[in-house]
Design a protein around this nucleic acid. Structure first.
Lengths: 160, 160
DNA sequence: GCATATAAGTCAACGTGACTGACGTAAAGG
DNA sequence: CCTTTACGTCAGTCACGTTGACTTATATGC
């Protein structure tokens, strides 16, 4: 868009540049997640618990099925993780008043506290990267990641 | 750099923007890896095998210790994965002529073939995203991901 | 030359988090 | 009323990470 093709193959489409992009994603994701693991481990939790706490926190009163669609795991997998979070008082379930089959999930105060401890470290890492890269780079980061994400999932990121 | 601070808190540092950045990374990484899983599964392999095949392919004659440092897993974990790749003829080990304690890892033709099938799908995904985002966005993607990556790992990406 | 350090491999036990398949129950809806 | 949907659960499996202990081979410093 901003940089109309300078020929059939711009430099950034060379194979080594594509490999660099893959490795950037690999290392960034790895370093992005490792900091939280210590906090999670202190509760005997893993990354699966983090993902549940995060998405329930960001989507209060989400149904189990919706959460499964976000996480793309089986209900049996979610069950073990969610079961512990509920029984240990991080997440509450209540019946949907509009549709009694649905269970609506939400964080308790304890759950919000855990979620905010976890998110804070990741937000700080992103903020540091955003700040040092600047607004133009942030927009580029968004555009490229949107392009990597499956078309079906892109809807999630429509801006107001 | 490109966009010097417009005040104490530019818009892209707002909490919801940081959450968006986190979710972009989560969904991009997930969608980036899922395509390869089918190919891997057809060999009875998982993502750990992919990572080994990829990094050995990109770093011929890498030592076991160096590979462990990249992957940040224990040698016992690597052992199971690497052992299968060697015994099934995807990876070779040979003694380092300069230091007999080291084993140098490399892909066989079979290993290169698997690696290239796997990488091709991921390269295509990145290329599509890069192409549609353009050169300026690509540079932004690189800058932000570099900022997310631990300082110690950033050396890996120094350009010529 | 010997002691120590390094590189690699191995045995054992364990935990998390995915999966499949089958079954049960409650509520909604045509 | 019957089917579909939402949820939960029992049972078994597998990938992939962990810790800890121990061995073998080679390199290196004193």
């Amino acid at each position: 868009m901003t940089d109309v093709k300078a020929g059939p193959n711009p430099l950034y489409l060379r194979e080594d540049q594509l490999h660099e992009a893959m490795e950037l994603l690999f290392f960034a994701y790895r370093d992005f997640t490792t900091e939280c693991d210590a906090i999670l481990a202190s509760h005997g939790f893993g990354r699966a618990h983090h993902r549940v706490v995060y998405f329930v926190g960001r989507n209060p009163d989400i149904s189990v099925t919706s959460l499964l669609e976000i996480l793309r795991i089986t209900k049996q997998s979610l069950s073990r993780v969610l079961g512990r979070l509920v029984s240990e008082g991080f997440v509450t379930t209540r019946q949907d008043p509009a549709d009694g089959r649905r269970r609506l999930l939400a964080l308790t105060a304890k759950g919000r506290s855990l979620e905010s401890r976890l998110s804070a470290t990741q937000r700080a890492r992103i903020a540091k990267a955003y700040r040092s890269a600047g607004g133009v780079a942030v927009e580029g980061y968004r555009e490229v990641l949107m392009g990597i994400i499956d078309e079906a999932d892109r809807r999630r990121f429509h801006r107001p």
